[in-house]
Structure formats: C-alpha cells, structure tokens
C-alpha cells in the first residue's frame, strides 16, 4: 500500500493485486450501501420506491386535473412525466448521496490506506441501480394499466442510464471531494437541483416553451436525457442520433474531470474529513 515504496517484487504484480483488492473492496461497499441504506430496513426500501411514486401521483393530479395541461403529443401526462421524472429523481438522489458519502467513512479514511473514490462510486451506483429497478417496475405497471409505453425502448434506455451514471459519477466525485473541505456544497446543491429540474423539460414538452428561449432550454444536456428516453419509451424510436455521441463524450469528460479533481484533493482528506 505504500505508494512510494520501492519493492523487491515487480510493479506489475503489485498493481494487479491492488486492482483485485480494490474490486473486492468496491463490491463490499456496494453491498453495504444496498443493504444498510435500503434493504436493511423495510421503511428504507419503501421510501426509495414510494417517494418518486408519490411525487408522480401529485404531479399527475396537479397537471391533469388542476392545470388541465395538454399538448403531450398524444400520450398521457402520467406516462409523459413518469418516463422522465424517475431518472431525474434517481440522478438527483445519486448525486446527493455520492456527494455526502465520504464523512460516513471518516474513521476509515483517517486510519486505513485505500482508494477513497470507491466510496463515492459505490454510493452513486447503488442508488442508481435501485432506482433503475423501481423505474422498470413502474413503467411495466403503467404499461399494464394501458398507458402507451414501448417496453422495447429499454434497449436504448439502458445505455442512456449508463451514460447518466457515468456523468453523475464524475460530478459526484468532484463535489464529494470539495465537500470534505467546504461543507456548503450540500446547501448549494439542493436549491440548484430544484432550479435545474424546472429548466429541464421534465414536466413540460419543449414544444410548449416560447420560441425565444427554446434554443436555450434545448441546449441543456439534461434535456437530451429526457428527450431520448421519451423517444425510446413513448414513441418506440430506437434510431441513434448525433446528439448521442455528444452525450457519450460529455459523460466521459465529466467523469475524467471529476476523477481528476478527486485525485488532486483526496490525499488531503485525512486532515479534513
């Protein structure tokens, strides 16, 4: 574990063994995140699935029965929002949990040498994995209720979730690292995510946005996620488009940048966490 230590054994052996250990450690963290956070308590699991469901119900009631909103290109508002809202909530929760994941491991960070990013990544992936399971369940139920959902769209939806996971992991790594030093990150993040949700066409179609600002709203990278999920799951269109490539590159860049920030800051966690 001594990074600077010269050794009688080859560096290749050392690296491969460390990788094996890190994989085992990551699997351990992932299992822990899932069991202790969600599956450990009945309420934890229920809350993870019920809160997006409740939100979905409230939005459906408010928008279809109170505002009587229309213009969802033939599909019902419920299906329209369910497809996009759930991934948004998943990403938001993963980002929050990832950002705040390090202090829980403060004791370990102060006393044991290990790659700290495993904690953040495990936290993000555990959250997203669980939310994805909920997403699939809800869409299947909506389909059975007669909502116009194309389950074949998952062929595209799964890669989209993976791209989101990559990007969110990058952002979470950077924010988690900064959060160790500057505790305000979490207070800034919550309202910021709220604003982001409303400027992203989750609760409304881009077509309802006034012409003058439509290009700005459309440029939102989160808009890509929402649009492409609707293409796949509501319209059953699976063809790839150019913006998909841009999204992949953006997600890779976000991850690389987040990891770079994390690597720069993590040697100093021990003193501040």
């Amino acid at each position: 574990m001594m990074q600077g230590a010269a050794s009688a054994w080859t560096t290749r052996d050392r690296a491969s063994v460390l990788r094996a250990r890190d994989r085992a450690l990551f699997a351990h963290f992932l299992r822990r995140e899932l069991t202790s956070r969600y599956l450990g308590s009945v309420t934890g699991l229920a809350w993870a699935l019920l809160s997006p469901l409740a939100l979905l119900g409230v939005y459906d009631f408010v928008f279809t029965n109170v505002f009587r909103a229309t213009g969802f290109a033939g599909s019902s508002f419920l299906a329209f929002v369910a497809v996009a809202l759930w991934p948004w909530i998943a990403a938001q929760e993963a980002l929050m949990r990832g950002t705040l994941s390090l202090p829980g491991y403060a004791g370990m960070i102060r006393k044991v040498a290990f790659p700290h990013e495993l904690v953040v990544l495990a936290s993000v992936l555990a959250t997203l994995a669980l939310q994805f399971a909920g997403y699939v369940a809800v869409l299947v139920v909506l389909k059975l209720m007669g909502q116009p959902i194309h389950l074949s769209g998952f062929a595209l939806a799964i890669p989209i979730w993976l791209i989101v996971a990559l990007g969110i992991s990058g952002i979470a790594l950077a924010l988690a690292a900064v959060q160790v030093f500057v505790r305000d990150v979490e207070h800034v993040l919550a309202p910021l995510l709220m604003i982001l949700m409303y400027v992203t066409p989750i609760l409304y179609p881009v077509s309802l946005v006034p012409e003058s600002v439509r290009s700005i709203v459309a440029a939102n990278p989160l808009g890509w996620v929402v649009e492409r999920l609707r293409d796949a799951l509501l319209d059953g269109r699976l063809a790839l488009v150019w913006s998909d490539a841009i999204a992949v590159v953006t997600a890779l860049l976000l991850f690389a940048a987040g990891h770079w920030v994390f690597r720069r800051l993590s040697p100093h966690f021990e003193d501040f966490v």
């Binding site: 574990m1 001594m2 600077g4 230590a5 009688a8 044991v112 040498a113």
Partner: peptide
C-alpha cells in the same frame, strides 16, 4: 505512524516500507 501505514503521504523525504 500514519505515514508509515500509508494513510497520509509524506510532504518531504522517502518512505520505504516492505
């Protein structure tokens, strides 16, 4: 002890632990 255990990195000098 933390430097020897690899929990923190030394700012100066060489650490070699086998």
């Amino acid at each position: 002890l933390k430097i020897i255990a690899g929990v923190v990195k030394a700012t100066r000098g060489d650490v070699d632990v086998r």
